[in-house]
């Protein structure tokens, strides 16, 4: 065991003890003043970063979902709008046609009625004229019959009749 006491492989008990003492002193100094705070701070930081990344991930997924929802909603709205426009176009067409048809009908009816009225008036007028003619001719006839009474009378009769006619007219 001489090699422990001499030369390169000497194990000096004093140095051995000094090493342990130095290590322990360093441990005591740095445990409270450095290692604990450093480990705590780094741990807290890594925890925080992990939390941040997780929440960012969650938010990204949420945003993507929302975006998809939005897109879907937009698509649906577009479709709906197009549908509404198409429907209203058809409706408008229908209404237009209806209005035109109605107008046509109305005008046709109006014309018909006017014709009817004209016809009625004409018939009435003709009937009136006829009866008047009958009256007049009967009068004329009766007057012709009563003619030879005297010329004076006749003259006045004719005059009378002419006057009557004039008033009728």
């Amino acid at each position: 065991m001489d090699f422990i006491k001499e030369g390169l492989l000497r194990v000096d008990p004093g140095l051995f003890l000094w090493t342990i003492i130095t290590f322990m002193v360093l441990m005591l100094i740095l445990w409270k003043m450095a290692w604990k705070p450093i480990v705590d701070a780094l741990d807290a930081r890594s925890e925080r970063i992990r939390g941040d990344i997780e929440s960012a991930d969650r938010k990204r997924i949420e945003a993507e979902k929302l975006l998809a929802q939005h897109k879907e909603m937009m698509d649906r709205a577009k479709d709906e709008a197009a549908e509404i426009i198409a429907k209203s176009k058809i409706e408008a067409e229908k209404i237009r046609n209806e209005i035109i048809e109605k107008a046509n009908n109305d005008s046709r009816e109006l014309a018909e009625r006017a014709k009817q009225e004209i016809k009625l008036a004409k018939e009435e007028a003709l009937a009136e004229i006829k009866s008047e003619i009958v009256n007049i001719s009967t009068e004329i006839a009766s007057k012709i019959i009563n003619k030879n009474l005297n010329p004076e009378d006749q003259k006045s009769l004719v005059q009378e009749t002419l006057d009557k006619l004039r008033t009728v007219q």
């Binding site: 360093l26 450095a34 450093i38 705590d40 701070a41 925080r48």
Partner: peptide
């Protein structure tokens, strides 16, 4: 030992101060 103390004691303060 001295080197470790003068490096890590101020370092601990700085690490603690800068959260991020």
């Amino acid at each position: 030992l001295f080197l470790a103390v003068i490096i890590f004691v101020p370092l601990a303060k700085r690490i603690k101060k800068d959260i991020m």
